[in-house]
């Protein structure tokens, strides 16, 4: 029963992620079939990768008949941030999170699932994370199939309005802690500032790299100026 309620609470927290994914993966589905990839293969790509930027870049490599080495390197660079997130998450796992659970749940480390898990105060239990992953994956794959098979049927302004959903969710995650903690607010501002500089002054840095560089730089500044003691972990 305990496991069930944990799974359910994870599934509930997965709903906003799934809705956001639905719209983003809808766009991915449209792009993929546009590049000549079948609906089934688009679905398989979404199910096995569960990542937006990596997949978008991946299908363009497939369409351009790129090499497997190029594919591997591009995925490595774009998705490198997940390694950082995985290390961060590994520090707040419940004791019940044994190796087999880690091997399975690692599949579901995405920006959004990480965000929801990493900002929880209590240690993460496997069932909770599975709940989020199941619902999010359902949203991601069904959006892909819908976009791949019926993408042109919806009005375009509706689809584009969906594009802001995940970002809205990110703001809802970072703003409340920033109200309570000056150091978190500072880290958020520094990171946003650096990312804006990267976007406009250093446009040759890819989106994935920008996130890594800004995330590391802002967190280093935070850790130098405001070290966090065990008891103060906000």
């Amino acid at each position: 029963m305990k496991k069930q309620s944990l799974l359910l609470s994870g599934m509930k927290d997965g709903i906003p992620i799934a809705l956001g994914y639905l719209s983003v993966s809808f766009g991915f589905g449209i792009t993929a079939v546009g590049l000549g990839i079948s609906v089934l293969n688009s679905f398989i790509i979404s199910l096995t990768n569960l990542t937006s930027a990596g997949q978008a870049q991946g299908v363009s490599i497939i369409a351009a008949n790129g090499s497997l080495l190029e594919m591997a390197l591009v995925q490595l660079i774009i998705n490198m941030r997940y390694a950082l997130m995985a290390i961060s998450l590994s520090q707040n796992l419940d004791k019940s999170f044994r190796l087999r659970h880690r091997l399975i749940a690692a599949y579901g480390i995405t920006d959004e699932i990480f965000a929801v898990c990493a900002t929880r105060k209590e240690p993460i239990k496997p069932m909770y994370m599975y709940g989020i992953i199941i619902v999010s994956t359902a949203g991601w794959t069904s959006g892909t199939v819908l976009g791949a098979s019926a993408g042109t049927l919806l009005p375009s302004n509706l689809i584009s309005a969906f594009g802001i959903m995940l970002y809205g969710m990110f703001l809802a995650i970072i703003i409340p802690p920033a109200k309570k903690s000056f150091s978190v607010l500072l880290v958020i501002m520094v990171s946003a500032g650096l990312s804006t500089i990267c976007k406009y002054l250093l446009p040759f840095i890819s989106g994935g790299f920008t996130v890594i560089i800004c995330g590391i730089a802002a967190s280093l500044i935070g850790a130098l100026l405001f070290p966090v003691g065990e008891e103060k972990k906000a």
Partner: peptide, 28 residues
């Protein structure tokens, strides 16, 4: 403590960098 603090700030820093300025382009 330094590494722990660094990891503590990572989620906020990463989410902030992903959101800004990308959110302003998110609807086209």
């Amino acid at each position: 403590v330094f590494v722990r603090s660094f990891l503590h700030y990572i989620p906020y820093a990463v989410l902030s960098a992903m959101t800004i300025p990308a959110i302003f382009y998110s609807t086209g």
